[in-house]
Each structure stands twice: as C-alpha cells, then as structure tokens.
Computed example of a mutant assay.
Amino acid sequence: MVKKKIMTTLSVVALAGSLLSTSAFAAENNGKESLVALGDSITYGYNLGKNNDHPSKKAFPYIIGEELNLRVSDLGVPGWTTIQLLAALQNNEMFQESVKHADKITIDIGSNDLLQAFADGNVTNQEVAPILNNLKSIILKVRSLTDAQIVVYNIYNPFQVTDTYRHVMGNFLLQAINPQIQAVVASLHDSEVSVADAYDAFGQNQAIYVRANDIHPTVEGQEQLAAIGYKAFIFESIKNRIFK
C-alpha cells in the first residue's frame, strides 16, 4: 500500500539530479540508489514554482525519490516530444551516462506529440504510429544502457471537464491510444518494465489534478503521478504490470 504521506502535500527534500561523470557518480552516490526521470514538462514540474528555470522539487520524480530514498536526476525537458527524447538517448553522452548509472527509470513522454497532432481537432492513425514506434525505441535504448527497473507512464487527459468538447475528444483518443502504450510495453517481454496508469489516476478529476487554464499537473496531480510510480516500483513482481 502506498504510504499516506505520498498522497498528501509533501515537503520534498531530495538531491537535485545532475549529469555526472563516472567517477562523480560514485562519489555522489553515498550508498543511495538513483532514479533518472526522462520526459517533458510533466516530469520537469512545469509551472509549479515562481519560474521554470529548473525542475521543480514538487514534481513526481522527487516525491518518489523521497519515498524510496533515491538520489534523483530529473531530466525532463519542457516541450520535448518522443523524437527529441529518443535523439538525446541516442546522441547525447551526458544523457547516456546518466541512464547507465540509474537503478530506476521513469519515462513520461508523448503528450506533446499528441497535443501537436490534436491541434487540428483530429488525430489519425498515421500520426499515432510514429509516437508508439518512438516510445518503443526509447525503452529499448534505455534498456541497452541499463538493466534498471523502468516505469513508463501513459497519458492523462489534460482538458478540464468544463472544456466539454476537448475533454470528451481527449477521453475518446486516449482510450484508444493508452492501450496501445500498454501493448508496446507488453511486446517487449521485459519483466522489469511496467506501466503507470496516469489516465485512470486522473480520471475525471482535472479540476484537482490539472492546473486551471493550463495542461500541466497541480501539486496534487504530481502526487498522483508519484503514487502510481511508487506502486510500480514497489510491486514489481505483480504479473499485471499496469499500476493505477
């Protein structure tokens, strides 16, 4: 069971992650395992502080880090799509070194791809297929660098219930796309890769979990994301590897 603390407002005390050399990783570790969080502005904790010049300590990776006593490297980059994250993992030595030394990995990416595709009010199969292919390539690239446990987040509906058209369309699209994310993970036959179900965790509670006039999580939304990630890491032996 997830600790009560993770579901309430927390004062997060976690070491800020940094991209380190091999020797620096050893020096900084101090016996702690590490969590590397890959993703976009959701992972970054966008709009949770006075400015957005660094990842927010209220973002879900830091909450998980405190609960599991992990050293956290939040590598979320606002605005990134699956293409950009995949490119960083393939070409950026600092990203690669960070992943190589991770004990646990979170991947939360794809929301910006879908928002871009949805700009015209419609998302086609031709637009979805590359997102899923990129996600699979991201996971495989991470696995080629580390044997760490990996938790992949699916996509929550960012549109408020009162934004009726976009909310309904968001649910319609995500109810089709999120099972495909689960299928991508299942196709890998990797017992150390699981799915955290952000879609069900947020449900119809966007008023609580998504910032008004925004698409990013509130503090409470970040805590929900942390809770399902926490469960995925803790209950790694469960056969049904989607965590809500």
Rank of each mutant, 00 (worst) to 15 (best):
K3T: 12
K4T: 11
K5N: 10
M7E: 14
T8E: 15
V12Y: 00
V12E: 00
A14R: 12
L20C: 08
L20E: 15
S21Y: 11
T22L: 10
A24T: 08
F25Q: 14
A27Q: 09
N30G: 06
G31H: 05
G31W: 10
G31Y: 04
K32S: 07
S34C: 10
L35Y: 07
V36Q: 00
V36P: 00
L48M: 03
G49D: 15
K50D: 10
D53V: 14
H54C: 15
K58F: 13
A59V: 05
Y62E: 08
G65Q: 15
L70K: 04
V72Q: 02
D74W: 01
L75S: 06
G76L: 02
V77D: 10
P78Y: 01
G79M: 01
G79F: 10
Q84H: 14
L86G: 08
Q90W: 02
N91W: 02
E93M: 11
Q96W: 01
K100T: 07
K100I: 01
D103I: 02
D103A: 03
I107Y: 04
D108K: 07
G110F: 01
D113G: 05
A117E: 13
N122E: 12
T124Q: 13
T124L: 07
T124M: 07
Q126M: 08
V128Q: 11
P130K: 07
N133E: 14
S137Y: 15
S137D: 15
I138F: 01
L140V: 05
V142K: 04
R143S: 14
Q149V: 06
Y156N: 10
Y156Q: 09
N157P: 05
P158K: 03
T162H: 03
D163A: 06
T164K: 12
T164Y: 09
T164C: 06
V168R: 12
V168T: 14
M169F: 09
G170S: 09
G170T: 05
F172M: 12
L173Q: 15
L174P: 07
A176Y: 11
Q180T: 12
Q180H: 06
I181P: 03
Q182T: 11
S187L: 01
S191G: 11
S191N: 08
S191L: 10
E192L: 14
V193A: 05
S194H: 09
V195T: 07
V195C: 09
V195P: 01
A196E: 05
Y199G: 03
D200Q: 15
D200Y: 10
D200K: 15
A201T: 14
A201V: 09
G203N: 14
N205C: 07
N205P: 13
A207V: 12
Y209G: 08
R211V: 06
A212M: 09
N213C: 08
D214V: 04
I215Q: 09
P217K: 00
T218K: 05
T218Q: 06
V219Q: 05
E220H: 13
E220I: 04
E223P: 09
Q224R: 13
L225T: 00
A227C: 07
A227K: 13
I228Y: 00
F233G: 08
F233K: 07
I234Y: 02
I234Q: 06
I238Q: 15
R241G: 00
F243E: 07
K244P: 14
